[in-house]
Design a protein around this nucleic acid. Structure first.
Length: 372
DNA sequence: TGGTCCCGCCACCCT
DNA sequence: AGGGTGGCGGGACCA
């Protein structure tokens, strides 16, 4: 990647590596923030990769996961279309139906799950939503490949949650479940790796949250779902708390540095200083995240969803805990962003425009003026 | 130190 | 043939 090269060759560039800045979850958040707005129809993978400052390979990971829950759909080579979050409830519903048909059953955190009467191949052939792929290709290779695809693993992972009686699922148990009979240790490790990827993306979207099994203290994931956020104020609060809790990277792009041992040792020593130095930028990213969440709610609201606590002034609301719009203005002041790079600045400008126009439209108010 | 998961190699697919 | 796609697992990072 040229971005890597140029950064690395800069003598004054901070040769620090931070794993979290490169995480798939953060990349997903940034991806969604970049494309989740009106007017976006087509997503070019090259465009996404360059705007987000990552190599194409990583975009495939995110896009495959998002595709499996309907947020994007493959249009053709290098091209995806943006379907939006509105697709998620539909896809989840469909997955649940399929899971019931396929007799998916998951009985507990460390217990067994089975996909009864079907091997993985059988399942995979029935899972494609909306018949997006041509079913004609039925060579064994393609089937085997699809069985292991991130797309299918993601859908099956979702099915586990949708059909689970357990409150939380560990990745180990999910891997065992998804592997069926063939779970040697290598296959297990590979499956768990993929599940980590998926879990990170889902966590960044607040579809699931990481927790710990009360007895084993093993890391596990709890399903939060999507619809609940639209109808349940407390869930929304959770979303906001979550965004406070999660500290994202320092830039909207994942430009920065390849990891190296040298980098990492330097990094550890200077991490504290770095934390202070980048404090403002972290706030900017958190602000981004707030706006991104807000946009999600805005879009959903304006399309007829039930308003959560973000109901704008002047809109009917059954929620007594509604925060007045003044909070948003103060939020904007509190989190007054100080972007240090152009891409971030542009993106923020876009958010502000989008939000202002939405607010004016939905709340029937004059465009809001925020101090900038 | 075990859990986590970034990273990029490379096989396969498609045009 | 060559570019696109994405499975895979080594090994770095981190709590």
């Amino acid at each position: 990647m040229s971005s890597f090269v140029s950064r690395e060759s800069e003598p004054n560039s901070r040769t620090l590596y931070c794993r979290k800045e490169k995480s798939l979850g953060l990349l997903c958040s940034n991806f969604l923030a970049l494309y989740n707005h009106d007017g976006v129809q087509t997503i070019g993978l090259d465009d996404a990769a360059s705007k987000l400052g990552v190599e194409r390979r990583r975009i495939y990971d995110v896009v495959n996961i998002l595709e499996s829950i309907g947020v994007v759909a493959r249009k053709g080579k290098n091209q995806y279309s943006w379907k939006g979050f509105g697709e998620i409830p539909r896809v989840l519903e469909k997955l649940k139906e399929e899971a019931v048909k396929q007799n998916f059953c998951f009985s507990g955190c460390n217990k067994s799950l089975r996909v009864s009467d079907e091997n993985e191949s059988g399942v995979s052939l029935n899972l494609k939503i909306d018949g997006q792929d041509n079913p004609s290709e039925s060579s064994k290779h393609i089937d085997t490949k699809r069985e292991k695809s991130l797309w299918l693993i993601t859908q099956n992972f979702v099915k586990l949650f949708l059909c689970s009686e357990a409150e939380m699922i560990t990745l180990d148990s999910a891997a065992v479940a998804l592997l069926g009979d063939a779970h040697d240790s290598t296959a297990m490790r590979t499956k768990v790796r993929r599940l980590y990827d998926i879990a990170n993306v889902f966590a960044s979207m607040n579809l699931i949250e990481k927790t710990h099994h009360p007895e084993s203290r093993k890391p596990a994931f709890r399903w939060l779902g999507w619809g609940a956020k639209l109808h349940n104020g407390s869930k929304t609060a959770l979303v906001l708390n979550e965004s406070k809790k999660r500290v994202f990277g320092t830039e909207i792009t994942n430009h920065s540095l390849k990891r190296t041992k040298a980098n990492s040792s330097v990094h550890q020593k200077s991490q504290q200083k770095e934390n202070i130095a980048t404090h403002n930028k972290h706030e900017s990213i958190e602000y981004d995240h707030e706006i991104y969440k807000l946009e999600q709610h805005s879009k959903q609201s304006s399309k007829g969803f039930v308003f959560g606590p973000f109901t704008p002034a002047g809109m009917p609301s059954g929620n007594k805990n509604v925060r007045p719009v003044r909070d948003w203005e103060s939020l904007a002041c509190t989190y007054k962003p100080q972007y240090l790079n152009q891409a971030l600045s542009d993106l923020f400008a876009h958010y502000m425009e989008a939000w202002k126009s939405w607010y004016a439209e939905v709340a029937g108010k004059e465009e809001i003026h925020l101090s900038s």
